[in-house]
Design a protein around this nucleic acid. Structure first.
Length: 267
DNA sequence: AGAAATACCCGTACGC
DNA sequence: TGCGTACGGGTATTTC
C-alpha cells in the first residue's frame, strides 16, 4: 500500500482490520447513500467479495475488493464503525456490510450527505482531484505557479477539490489566517513569498488536525479536539490571538468565513 | 469553458 | 410550551 498521508478525521475511518474479510451480505437502509450502481447490482456485485486493501485518496475512503473498489465519502456527518453481530444497528445507519468474521461494517450518517460507490472505474471519480496537500507533489513552487494560473478568490479556490484535495471550510479559514491572506484576495495576485507561507500553513493546519483527530464542531460532527485550537473559525467577535483585533465573520462563496481584518488585509 | 449559484439533509438553537 | 425558521458542513448538478 502506498504511504498516503491522512486527511484529518478521514484517518480514523480507515479500518485496516477489514483486510482479509469477505462481505457476506449488504443492507442498504437509505437508498440515496448509494451513488452507483443500482441497489440490485450493488448487492449482486459486492456479495462474496473479499476485502484486499483499505486506503484513502483525498476525502474518499477506498476499500479495494477482488473485482471492484468500494469508495466511501463521509461528507460531514458520516462515520464508519465495525460492530460485533450482537450489537444492533443504530438509527442513522445507512449501509451495513456483514462480514465473514461475524462482525459488520456500519456506515452511519445523520445528515444523509455521505455517498458510496461500487465501481471498477475509480479513476472516473478520483481522477479529477488535485494533489494531496501532504504529498510530495504539493510544493510551494507548484502552489505559486497554479495560483498564478488562475484568477479566483483564494478561499473558493482552496476549497475546490480539483485544485487541492483535502481542505474543507474550517481548515481553509485557519490556514488563510496563519498565512495572513484574505479569503477574497485574488489568487493571481499572491506573491511567491505569500505562496510559501500559504503552503506552509496548509501543511501545518492539516497535520495539526490529524494530530488532534479532527474537530468536533457540533454533536453530530464528532472527532477530536481541534475545535479548541481554532484561531478564527467560529471565533467571530472574539479577539485575534495574534493582534487582539476583533475577528469578523463574512460570507465568501456562500460559506461562512472568518478573518482577522488586521492580520488578513486585502491588498 | 470556467466560475458561481443551487440542491441536497436534519438536529439544534433561536425568535415569536 | 409550541411552532416555524435559519443554520452549517462538502460536493454534484445546474445556471450563468
Amino acid at each position: 500500500m502506498p504511504e498516503l498521508p491522512e486527511v484529518e478525521t478521514i484517518a480514523r475511518a480507515i479500518k485496516p482490520e477489514l483486510v482479509g474479510k469477505t462481505i457476506l451480505s449488504a443492507d442498504l437502509r437509505w437508498a440515496r447513500t448509494l451513488a452507483i450502481p443500482s441497489p440490485l447490482q450493488f448487492k449482486k456485485q459486492i456479495i462474496g467479495q473479499k476485502i484486499l486493501d483499505v486506503s484513502r485518496r483525498a476525502k474518499y475512503l477506498i476499500i479495494n475488493l477482488e473485482s471492484y473498489n468500494l469508495l466511501i465519502h463521509l461528507r460531514m456527518s458520516g462515520d464508519l464503525m465495525i460492530r460485533t453481530g450482537k450489537i444492533k444497528p443504530e438509527k442513522h445507519d445507512r449501509l451495513l456490510l456483514y462480514l465473514s468474521d461475524r462482525k459488520y461494517l456500519a456506515f452511519n450518517d445523520t445528515r444523509k450527505f455521505g455517498r458510496v460507490w461500487l465501481t471498477n472505474k475509480s479513476e472516473e471519480i478520483l481522477g479529477k482531484l488535485g494533489p494531496e496537500p501532504l504529498g510530495t507533489g504539493f510544493t510551494a513552487k507548484w502552489l505559486f505557479e497554479n495560483l498564478q494560473a488562475r484568477k479566483r478568490y483564494l478561499k473558493p479556490l482552496l476549497l475546490d477539490q480539483t485544485f487541492i484535495a483535502g481542505l474543507g471550510n474550517i481548515y481553509t479559514d485557519e490556514c488563510l489566517h496563519i498565512a495572513q491572506l484574505h479569503p477574497l484576495a485574488a489568487s493571481n495576485n499572491v506573491t511567491q513569498k505569500q505562496a510559501d507561507a500559504l503552503h506552509k500553513a496548509i501543511r501545518a493546519v492539516l497535520k495539526e488536525g490529524i494530530r488532534r483527530n479532527g474537530a468536533s464542531i457540533d454533536w453530530v460532527y464528532r472527532g477530536g479536539d481541534y475545535q479548541n485550537h481554532f484561531r478564527v473559525y467560529g471565533r467571530d467577535d472574539e479577539p485575534c490571538a495574534v493582534c487582539g483585533t476583533k475577528i469578523q465573520k463574512l460570507t465568501v462563496g456562500q460559506r461562512g468565513t472568518h478573518v482577522c481584518p488586521n492580520c488578513q488585509r486585502l491588498r
